[in-house]
Nucleic acid binder design. Structure first.
Length: 376
DNA sequence: AGGATTTGACCGAG
DNA sequence: CTCGGTCAAATCCT
């Protein structure tokens, strides 16, 4: 895929070549970004990590080769430095998150994230949940676009938290007893923008509250299986004051529901149903990039699958809509798709799951890649 | 009917 | 006392 691009470029004029080289580099960046987003999931899959790295290296190598052969690197560098409004860098202006990523070196964050996970040996960050039935509902592209792109602007492990469990009356755990991880994820910019970011877990909304100084209310969710499996996982979702299209999601505590072999969130992986298989596959692949034992998909394959089927892939998550609730549970109960469930299972058990799933990554990438920057 | 969401009230931390 | 987080009854949805 990349080689052909490179070959084609060689037959073109320098300016075209430059443009394509630029795109190539950006694509490489995207691949890297995708990888970064899934490092958590891939942490335990060195082969896939290796493969992914190879893919990225190939892209950059191709770009480098073209730069060396066809043009003056200096000009390219200059291109990079030009103002965002420059027509010379459509891709650049197209993907602000990428720029940001490049600028701030999010990879470092990702590495830290993984390190933390490994050190802590705990469950992963949430990934997008699939809303089961809602998967097939309309505004798929919106969902895709709005899904968690995995732009981790901030990710923290702090000791703050609150929580209440069930002891006597309302015994609240001390704030420093809970783990809190905060990240920001883009909201859909088309369709139902109320849809909050999703991950691979099912949540039940148990409260919403206006927060002082915040423009938008904060929604409180807890794991659907809280009662059944005494799963303490919770999350809070709130729009950023200054950015309606961005949610700040705070995950509190780890899921323990998947630990149970009987946990509903991990039904056995029966064969896929027909008809929606593509969607499911895409969704599964995308939302559960974890290279799991049972259904691991190399990043490279995700990419190709993604690019090939994105158009028809409805986004995987569903939470149908119901006003801003992430709890797909309502309309799409638990895990409706075996493949997804299987993947989720794997993910759960792998103890990793970055906040970002491919579903969120590729679609947005694709959108940005093709549609240009409509976000800003 | 069962389960999810809504929403006002309650409770504890600061 | 204020505010954030949670509870739980009412309501909604499938």
């Amino acid at each position: 895929m990349f080689k052909s691009e490179t070959d084609k470029a060689k037959r073109k004029r320098p300016d075209q070549t430059m443009e394509e080289t630029f795109s190539l580099i950006l694509h490489g960046c995207k691949l890297a970004k995708d990888l970064e987003s899934n490092l958590g999931n891939l942490a335990s899959q060195p082969e896939i990590l290796s493969k992914s790295c190879d893919d990225i290296v190939k892209v950059f190598a191709a770009a480098k080769g073209r730069l060396n052969a066809d043009q003056d690197p200096a000009s390219f560098t200059q291109l990079l430095r030009e103002s965002p409004s420059s027509s010379q860098q459509p891709q650049q202006s197209t993907d602000p998150s990428l720029q940001e990523w490049l600028k701030y070196g999010v990879i470092t964050q990702a590495m830290d994230m993984i390190q933390q996970k490994v050190l802590a040996g705990k469950a992963p960050f949430e990934t997008n949940e699939m809303g089961g039935k809602n998967l097939l509902e309309g505004s798929a592209s919106a969902r895709l676009k709005g899904s968690v792109v995995g732009e981790i602007q901030a990710m923290e492990l702090s000791d703050s938290g609150r929580g209440s469990s069930s002891s006597s009356q309302r015994p609240r755990r001390r704030k420093d007893d809970e783990e809190k991880r905060t990240m920001t994820v883009p909201a859909p910019q088309m369709g139902n923008t109320d849809l909050p970011p999703e991950d691979n877990f099912t949540w039940r909304k148990y409260g919403q509250k206006e927060i002082l100084g915040s423009r938008y209310p904060r929604a409180y969710y807890r794991c659907t299986h809280q009662k059944l499996y005494n799963c303490p996982a919770k999350k809070q979702v709130q729009r950023l004051d200054n950015d309606f299209y961005t949610f700040e999601v705070t995950y509190i505590s780890q899921h323990t529901c998947h630990m149970s072999s009987t946990a509903p969130s991990i039904p056995p992986p029966p064969p896929l149903e027909t008809g929606t298989q593509d969607q499911i596959m895409t969704q599964a692949m995308v939302s559960q990039p974890t290279p799991a034992s049972s259904s691991s998909v190399p990043l490279g394959r995700w990419l190709s699958m993604e690019f090939n089927s994105l158009a028809s892939a409805s986004c995987g998550s569903g939470s149908g809509g119901a006003g801003g609730s992430t709890a797909s549970a309502r309309y799409g109960r638990e895990v409706d798709y075996p493949a997804v469930a299987d993947l989720a299972d794997v993910m759960f058990n792998s103890g990793s799951s970055s906040s970002n799933s491919m579903e969120f990554i590729f679609p947005s990438v694709e959108d940005k890649w093709e549609a240009g920057d409509k976000k800003n």
